[in-house]
Every structure is written in structure tokens, then in C-alpha cells.
Design a protein around this nucleic acid. Sequence first.
DNA 1: GATATGACCGCAA
DNA 2: TTTGCGGCCATAT
Length: 107
Amino acid sequence: MTAEPAQLSDAERIWQVVAGIPPGRVCTYGTVAELAGLPRRARMVGRVLSRLPEGSRLPWHRVVNARGELSLPADSPGAQMQRERLEDEGIGFVRGRIPLTRFGWQG
DNA sequence: GATATGACCGCAA
DNA sequence: TTTGCGGCCATAT
């Protein structure tokens, strides 16, 4: 028989990790993947977030790339919303980047 | 089945 | 500092 996922799927584990990022903190794709038990699968995190519905309450905006930059196209509405929500949480940008040494979250 | 693509990452130069 | 390259892996064609 076609087995339904007995445990949480990869995507569901990623959602759980992202949901656990505290306000005012950011996490990189690679770190999210690792915390989700998927080392070296940063790209999968990006893919999962790109497929989130607009109404999702997941704090996806707290996930940035390893350089502290937003990975969405800068001109996209998503990127602008992401930056706005981050600044609302007190996260500051320095020359277009977030200082991960200060705002990064390790779990 | 093979190839191309993507909200990535780490390292070497 | 930036750039290039290999690695990673689910989806789409």
C-alpha cells in the first residue's frame, strides 16, 4: 500500500524550525536545514519557503542567506515585505546586509 | 532516464 | 573583499 509519511516530512520539519526562530533574530538557510536534521540541504529550505502560501503565519522573513542578505530578487514584493518586517523587529541593515554576528540565531 | 533550474553554502584564490 | 566552482537535491521539461 502506498505509505503515507509516518513521520514529519522534510518540509514539515523545516516549517517547525522556522516557526521557532524568535523575533528580532534571523537564521540562515543552511542553519535551518541543519536544525531540521537536513545538513547540506540549504537549497531545499529555499525551495520550501518559496512554495509557502501568502497567508502563512510562518516567520519566513527571518530566514536569510549566509551573507546576511535577502535571497529574493531585490525588486520583488516579497523582498520588500521581508525587509520591512525585519526592521520592525529591530533588525538593522548595514550596507544592505544584516550583521549575523549580532542578529544571527543558533537555536 | 537525462538535463536544467533554483529564496543555498563553503572553500580556495 | 569578491569571484568561481563543486556539491546538494527536489521539480519541471
